[in-house]
Write a protein that binds this DNA or RNA. Sequence first.
DNA 1: GAAGTTATGCTACTTAGGTAGTTTGCATTT
DNA 2: AAATGCAAACTACCTAAGTAGCATAACTTC
Lengths: 237, 237
Amino acid sequence: MATENKLFDKYIPVLKNCELFNGMTNEHWRELLVNFHEEKWPKETCMVNHQKFLFHFYIIVSGRIKMYNVDEFSEKEHTLFLLKESDVFDLFCLMDGTRHHVYYECLDNIKVLAIPMDKLKLWLNKNPVYYQHFLSYAGKMMRMLESNVSQLIFTDISTRLLRLLVNNVNSNSKQLEHINDLPNKEIANLIGSTRAVVNRHLQRLKKNGSIKIARKQVEIKDISILLKELENQNKKI
Amino acid sequence: MATENKLFDKYIPVLKNCELFNGMTNEHWRELLVNFHEEKWPKETCMVNHQKFLFHFYIIVSGRIKMYNVDEFSEKEHTLFLLKESDVFDLFCLMDGTRHHVYYECLDNIKVLAIPMDKLKLWLNKNPVYYQHFLSYAGKMMRMLESNVSQLIFTDISTRLLRLLVNNVNSNSKQLEHINDLPNKEIANLIGSTRAVVNRHLQRLKKNGSIKIARKQVEIKDISILLKELENQNKKI
DNA sequence: GAAGTTATGCTACTTAGGTAGTTTGCATTT
DNA sequence: AAATGCAAACTACCTAAGTAGCATAACTTC
């Protein structure tokens, strides 16, 4: 009884921010958290088709994990999602119980709350009200993936890079977050391009004064220039 | 009472083939079908953000409907899904109840079974067992979208076209189905390219003897050549 | 503080795919 | 059967993005 209260008290803000369990009462949280335990994974931990992922469900409480795909022939990587605080995984395995062919890598030192998949399923059957939550969350993910697909088809690398930057500016601090300390290679993986090409575009943005770059560091200097560029990208036929 | 029995008897094979309701008993089908009615939409009917779609859920019983996206600037189209017999839509609206920003167009004369969204939701709440079905179906769709994204990033147009062809060969008849009577433009929309480029690749395939083409007609002549081409595409770095 | 590693910056080159425009041919309509 | 319209075929051209390679800078670690 003490454990789950401790977990809950410790991570209230993170858990409350968890979209999948949006609006869940404290009582239900405590009931669910009985089954959770905390795990720590060091930075750069790489999880390749880990059996464990079929059997556990995780809530990230601190750090970033990239979920990515590797092309078996070209060995190129594509980052599908950059998971962070309050994100959960793997929803896919929860939903249909089959193995999800993706890879995971910790970009920071990670803390997660873990629950055995079958216990989550039991809890869900006991509280079927939350099925609705899960469905609508899945719906949101699908829309995200769908717009992702369209963006890949409709827009060029330069636009995709601009969007990536603009979408990761914290509206309060006006500073780039989540992706600000990634090397060019990781940025390329996020938008489906290569290091050289991303660097070419970043250099252009540096020259027009909108960003500042250093080793593993991108900083926004003038977001209005970025926004203007984005508009022009759209206009040019 | 007569109506839903008639609907069920009329469309047994189609409904039983419906993945979303996979394994549902006849009794449950009859219970659910009470709320359905049949609708016919003529070929080329175009549905643009139809309010109706928020309030109804459809099962296609005959004909094809393309679900597509349009880039507001370039006005290019991208076909997300080619829905056919036994497919359902719009799952997204069912799942989170918000408007789905896509377009629909009937490629054939269409027959659908329609149910008011809230009645489906009521039925689902009465039979929460089926939430699990819906979740796992959504999971499958997500995996599909995900692999779609990766394919766009990892493979070129030529490979995407080859895959499209190979994936739509009926394993019994060995003939191309679903996409065999589409104009080049529609094929282009399916793989995220343009008519001219698709035609260029089709000409190449015609020359190597793997396909036969005519106005709005693609026919497989030798699938082994297509499969060999696909293999080579993968090998070349 | 030397050696090794990783990330960036840049140049030069190649190529697939997009674009534009014209011709040809098939099919529907009147 | 003539006329219209759409789809396909083909040519020529342009460009963004991928590729290869190397020099330099910035961190590690021993």
